[in-house]
């Protein structure tokens, strides 16, 4: 906290995921009236704009920063938000970065599922419990599909965007857990404390999303 520069009461701190979503997020927020631009490629992780600070984070960390109040608001995929289990407000579906989370198996696989590989252990545990599948969950961090192909797991729960990876690897979606897209999330206290800035921002984002879809 000591490293924070002096800020006005209405200053907004935003948590945005680095990478692909960042560009879409910044473009949408600037069209919604925030004075922010895509930062120059640099090693800076915190970008200062008039009245707005942008924190560039790994997407899994966005709900953490917003829930614990270090950031007032952020943008993150619904998949990451559900996995985080964080109690934040999520007032706007921004509709970009669409994908869905699915149970995936090799084409033709029909045996019992004993082990599931996934980047989403919380979501997977809840889904398997609801379906009554007594499978063990293995937390993996990338190229999840390999787990079924190599026999590490009988199935995987992972994001599907176009389905290209699945087709190329002889895999198929057996079930869809939920559909995801980018969400505006807001800290519960910040929405009230900084409502003069956040309320109009939410309204403008809703209009933009409606116009553009």
């Amino acid at each position: 906290m000591s490293s924070q520069p002096e800020r006005s009461a209405n200053h907004l701190t935003l948590a945005l995921p680095k990478g692909r979503i960042l560009e879409d997020a910044i473009s949408l927020l600037s069209r919604a009236g925030l004075p922010i631009t895509m930062p120059e490629a640099s090693r800076a992780l915190r970008h200062e704009f008039p009245g707005v600070t942008v924190l560039e984070l790994r997407n899994q960390d966005v709900p953490v920063y917003v829930d614990l109040g270090v950031a007032d608001a952020g943008i993150v995929g619904k998949d990451v938000l559900i996995e985080s289990g964080r109690a934040v407000y999520e007032p706007v579906d921004l509709r970009f970065a669409p994908c869905h989370l699915s149970l995936i198996r090799e084409v033709g696989a029909s045996g019992p599922i004993h082990r599931v590989g996934t980047k989403y252990p919380h979501v997977a545990r809840q889904y398997l419990a609801e379906k009554g599948i007594p499978a063990e969950i293995v937390k993996l961090n990338g190229n999840i599909e390999l787990a079924t192909l190599t026999g590490l797991a009988d199935a995987v729960i992972d994001l599907v965007q176009t389905g290209g990876t699945l087709r190329a690897n002889n895999l198929q979606e057996v079930d869809v857990l939920f559909h995801s897209s980018a969400r505006l999330i807001v800290n519960r206290a910040a929405l009230k404390l900084r409502r003069e800035r956040l309320r109009p921002l939410i309204a403008r984002l809703r209009e933009l999303v409606r116009e553009e879809s």
Binding site: K78, A87, V88, Y89, E90, P91, V92, D93, S181, R183, V186, L191, R206
Partner: peptide, 9 residues
């Protein structure tokens, strides 16, 4: 309670 318009829809 989460003010989630998307989940209401």
């Amino acid at each position: 309670d989460r003010k989630s318009g998307a989940d209401i829809d």
